[in-house]
């Protein structure tokens, strides 16, 4: 009696185990598929989409400021937010897109904004300065380099995403 009972429960055990493992495997396969299927929905609300900013042909070694507007959705509240970036080509002709937001208190920095430092970014609020690559100049108020935008080039147009902080200078 007890032997028989054991046999059944062993089979049941295997059944349950297989169903369980199979279920996990199915979930593992399906989850990314579902994620891909509803990806556009997730993208629209995450705010991490890329915005077209400028034609790549307009870029040069001299940093230029570009403004663009995005629609920011915070739950039920939608607002237009203007964003800016300083964009230039570095020595290897690679695009660099820096956020103009000063790491001190959030003013907008200007390239060559102070005639004493024509090859630096200058913050008009409290005289913070950054080198061309965005690194903060020591002994000025900012304590971190300027953020860098996520960027991608599609069909000759530069798309910018969110600014990302860089490692400590």
């Amino acid at each position: 009696m007890s032997e028989k009972k054991n046999e059944v429960s062993r089979r049941q055990f295997l059944n349950y185990t297989l169903t369980g493992v199979g279920g996990f495997m199915a979930a593992g396969i399906l989850a990314p598929m579902v994620r891909f299927a509803i990806d556009p929905v997730l993208k629209a609300t995450s705010g991490s989409e890329m915005s077209p900013v400028v034609d790549v042909s307009e870029l040069s070694n001299e940093p230029q400021r570009f403004d663009w507007t995005i629609e920011q959705v915070d739950a039920w509240y939608t607002s237009d937010v203007t964003k800016s970036a300083w964009v230039y080509l570095d020595d290897n002709d690679e695009i660099v897109a820096l956020s103009p937001v000063c790491k001190h208190l959030g003013c907008a920095v200007n390239w060559a904004g102070n005639s004493d430092y024509p090859d630096q970014f200058f913050c008009p609020c409290h005289d913070g300065r950054y080198y061309k690559d965005g690194t903060n100049v020591p002994n000025t108020p900012p304590d971190a380099p300027l953020d860098e935008f996520e960027l991608e080039v599609k069909d000759g147009t530069l798309y910018l995403g969110n600014p990302k902080p860089r490692g400590e200078a």
Binding site: T82, L105, G106, C107, A108, C125
Partner: peptide, 10 residues
């Protein structure tokens, strides 16, 4: 608002 965006720190 545009002024504020450019001079938020002061």
């Amino acid at each position: 608002q545009e002024l504020e965006r450019n001079y938020a720190g002061r």
